[in-house]
Design a protein around this nucleic acid. Structure first.
Lengths: 431, 431
DNA sequence: GTGAAAGCGCTAACAG
DNA sequence: CTGTTAGCGCTTTCAC
């Protein structure tokens, strides 16, 4: 079955509906279905493209015969195209995965690639009629803009990298959640990596991110990160904000919580409960967060006149903290209260204390920091200071976005104010 | 200060060391430093590039004068280049962020871009001497391969997308952690997004991922996801594995835990503890995970002969679960034990029960599912069934990698075996 | 082994 | 407002 171009109805193009990547024919052309092809295997082909694009057709026979396929023409706004029905799924399959490009949208819509590009980028420079036409075609063909290709031209991948030291700690995953949310609101996408608090992995990740052309990075520096790293990153021209932890001071934008104030709230609360000998359960990993919390502790003690009953260090796990209970109890300062580096340690310590025959919240007061969700679940429930990591993540993301927009902006800090959450573990001092 | 090309020592090139993106000069040329320029601002320029690349220099004077800069030549393996000292940081800055490309490596190493490309991709087709030379230059210039540009040619971005419904639930973040780990081991990078269990956001994310050219997707389908979505994704030619939740059955690769077996373990344990009237605290969100757990519950009851004491539904929060305690206690089936959809609900339920004057683990047995870390912290500690989400994440990643390698591979399932973790909440039945 | 040339899909600059 | 042109940095033939 072959038809000459002359037989084609004048406005056949208008009857074509393109749905997904399969061409559906209008009534006028339904006769072609008699070829015995399933509707789904009807694919318009031109220059190896799926869908109804084609060069100008001069000689239908010439197109129809050599390939041994049944063809028929239709025309779109400006040109007469050839629609070529593929016999077998083999070729159809191969085409199915051929990308729909800007150029094809342009061809179908009868405009230039530049115009389509403008439409895609929502430029005001394009006429409304043109825009809607192009948008219609994009929707019909299921066009997806290739951001990677765009980046090659304009150096904006709309991708940012987030590096956290531990994905099993909900403090960091809440942080991540906030960052992801804001980035998505700003139409960006997050590349995620876990440094496991290892600087060499962190380097590795940074290189990889660089190779992927990220626009910027949110970094919670791994333990032991040197300030040189920051200058190196800046040397790459890679915008960065540090968060939760900070290397150096004011070397980059930074989002975090006011750890010192948080610790002060905790200590004041304990002192208010009548405690005057307070110990600190710290963590082994040396980060700015640790230093701030420790300094805050010393400062708060000085302010309140309470006594430093000593510091114990534990690994950042429940077991580690539980195991440190004995050391805490053996502290020469005979603490009546313990402030913990974070809730994970606090929860572990409470387990360990109970194993050692002491009732946390009764015999000894415990306060955590961070107010992770688990603080509500421990027994007794854990008094803690909320640091709002989800918010910090969001702030970090906003700082980064701001910097992407204006690289020369002055270095900024976003600090969230902590909030004391009083629960049962911070009992009044037993007499 | 100008020198003619003739005055340049024959093997000056050999004395050049390129460190980072700054050129350091060997002793032979140290005289040039007398110009009064800081070493750091010495930048080799050619065609706006940083570092010592240049066209062949025919006429040194011509290069030196018009730009008003001090120049001197050196030669590399094959060609004579010009090294141009920039006066001001203005221009130097602009250049600093100019990318080092394959072509520049090639020019410096004196080979073709194709050869460098082969080296980068570790092809065996390149001579050892050439390889080491090229690698040296890459290290010197701090070359980073642009994966986005590579993808444009070869359609492999080494990027995969992971879509989870909730980043605040550690079940999913542990999952994520496993997936990220495996992907990084395989030298891939993870694009992360949070669907918030919303199908329209999920669509949005998928489009965005598509635009970023991900090689594949790991999907924990949002509540209400239709099987059509899967066929659509497949229609895009986008490899995908489902995980933790499944839409349809065997439509795609799948990694998960054997929820039914997990529930069976829990019920058997409870029955072994003397409980015969068991309730189920379920969740409102309708997902395959919920259905499997419910079905498993029914089946396990049938197997053990225990009695279904009724089901209560709660929102997936502590408050929701705590609030449901009254309903659980009012169940006409008078349960002596409650199996909970997951640990979050179990923990919340225990809080609620205690508020209602019942002692969980004493008056009523509680078992959770998932064995989140928090199970060890509740009081009493929570008996739960470990589903090992970190492992599931890793398995999902491996399934996806496998499919990327062989798209025609048969559809596969990876199911991890759950493990019962007995703790205090699953007391023997009170008499 | 290596080099030259042709794109991948997109956008910036400029000319109409 | 729209079209033309010239690449972005890389890989892939296909010669040599």
């Amino acid at each position: 079955m072959q038809r000459s171009g002359d037989e084609v109805p004048a406005r056949v193009g208008a009857l074509l509906r393109i749905v997904g990547r399969v061409v559906r024919f209008g009534a006028l052309l339904s006769g072609t279905l008699r070829c015995g092809m399933a509707l789904q295997s009807c694919v318009c082909k031109l220059s190896k493209r799926l869908c109804p694009f084609g060069e100008r057709v001069c000689n239908l026979q010439k197109w129809a015969s050599p390939a041994g396929r049944t063809c028929f023409p239709y025309h779109s706004d400006r040109r007469l195209y050839i629609c070529n029905i593929l016999r077998q799924s083999g070729e159809a399959e191969r085409m199915k995965h051929k990308k729909v490009t800007l150029g094809e949208i342009a061809r179908v819509a009868g405009v230039s690639r530049a115009t389509v590009s403008l439409v895609v980028r929502k430029s005001p420079l394009v006429a409304d009629r043109t825009r809607t036409k192009v948008e219609q075609v994009m929707a019909d063909l299921d066009y997806v803009r290739d951001i990677g290709a765009a980046r090659l031209r304009n150096n904006s991948s709309r991708t940012i990298g987030v590096i956290v030291p531990n994905l099993l700690n909900s403090f960091f995953t809440e942080f991540l959640s906030g960052a992801e949310r804001v980035m998505r609101e700003d139409d960006r996408v997050v590349l995620l990596a876990n440094s496991h608090d290892d600087t060499s992995r962190q380097n590795d990740i940074l290189q990889r991110f660089r190779g992927h052309g990220v626009d910027g990075v949110i970094l919670c520096p791994a333990e032991g990160t040197q300030p040189e790293l920051l200058t190196r990153i800046q040397g790459w021209g890679l915008p960065m904000v540090q968060s939760l932890r900070e290397v150096g001071r004011d070397l980059t934008d930074y989002a975090g919580a006011d750890y010192i104030e948080g610790v002060r709230l905790a200590v004041q609360h304990l002192v208010g409960q009548g405690h005057h000998r307070i110990a600190f359960l710290s963590v082994t990993a040396r980060t700015s967060a640790r230093e701030e919390r420790r300094n805050g502790f010393a400062r708060a003690l000085a302010e309140t006149g309470a006594e430093d009953a000593g510091t114990v260090e534990a690994e950042l796990t429940w077991d580690g903290a539980a195991g440190s209970a004995a050391k805490v109890l053996a502290l020469p300062g005979r603490p009546t209260a313990v402030l913990c580096f974070n809730d994970i340690l606090a929860a572990g310590l409470m387990l360990g204390l109970r194993r050692a025959g002491r009732e946390p919240g009764v015999d000894i007061a415990i306060v955590g920091l961070d107010d992770l969700p688990l603080a509500q679940l421990t027994y007794p429930s854990l008094t803690s200071v909320a640091m709002l990591p989800e918010q910090i993540g969001a702030l970090a993301a906003r700082l980064l976005v701001r910097r992407l927009v204006d690289r020369a902006a002055p270095i900024a800090r976003s600090i969230v104010a902590p909030a004391l959450m009083i629960r049962q573990s911070s009992c009044k001092k037993a007499d």
